[in-house]
Computed example of a mutant assay.
Amino acid sequence: MNSFSGIRFKKETAKRFQEFSKKHFNSHTEALATMLDFFFYNEISPRERLGPTGRTIEANLKKRINAVIAIMRDMEKTQTKPTVAMIASLFQLEERKNKPLIVEKKFIKPNKK
């Protein structure tokens, strides 16, 4: 059987570690060994930042998408709708009014009364 060794931790840190290891691992030894292996194999330090998190990336994407939507709405209001209205007015056929044709006087027959 393996022997155990005592390590001193602050109470708050020990409680956090115990809750974490109970949630994800079968024993505290397995939890600590897995964490050490993770840092060793990935050659990273637990103190360095890994970059933006999913939440910050999502927030940035939402901002950019909202900006694109605003640009498209502005284009629709200022460019697309007026252009479509002008083109539609060009292709609309208006009914002709029945105006009498202008006829020269020499071709008009005088009315007999």
Rank of each mutant, 00 (worst) to 15 (best):
S3D: 09
I108G: 03
L50T: 03
S21C: 05
K77Q: 10
R8E: 14
E19T: 09
K11I: 14
T56G: 01
N26L: 07
T80Q: 07
P110A: 13
M86H: 15
L101A: 11
Q79R: 11
K97R: 08
I87A: 03
E30L: 12
K113W: 13
K81L: 02
H28Q: 14
I102M: 09
I44D: 00
K99E: 04
E19D: 13
M86R: 09
T56L: 01
D37E: 04
I57A: 02
E58D: 11
N66A: 08
D37G: 01
T56D: 04
K10P: 01
K22E: 07
L61A: 05
S5M: 09
A88G: 15
L93E: 11
T53S: 01
T13E: 08
F39H: 00
K10Q: 07
K63F: 06
H28K: 12
K112E: 05
E43S: 00
K62C: 03
K22W: 08
I7Y: 15
A70N: 07
I102N: 09
K112V: 13
E76N: 10
K63L: 06
T78V: 06
K97I: 03
M75R: 07
A59K: 11
F107Q: 07
M1I: 11
T29W: 04
K109T: 11
T13C: 13
I108Y: 05
K97A: 01
K113T: 09
G54Q: 01
S3I: 14
T13S: 09
A59Q: 12
K10N: 15
T83C: 13
L32Q: 03
T34A: 07
A70K: 08
L93D: 11
A33T: 06
T29K: 08
P100M: 09
T80E: 07
I87D: 13
R47H: 07
T78N: 08
N42P: 00
I102H: 07
K112D: 10
V68Y: 13
I87Q: 06
I69V: 06
M72D: 10
T29A: 10
K113Q: 11
K23A: 15
K15W: 13
I87K: 07
R96S: 12
E104Q: 14
K22H: 09
L90A: 12
S3Q: 14
M1F: 10
V84Y: 07
L50M: 05
I102W: 02
R55T: 05
A85P: 02
D37A: 03
F107G: 04
Q79P: 04
L36R: 06
R47W: 09
L93T: 13
D74W: 06
E104T: 11
N98P: 02
T78D: 13
H28C: 08
K99S: 04
D37S: 06
K97H: 01
R73E: 08
S5A: 13
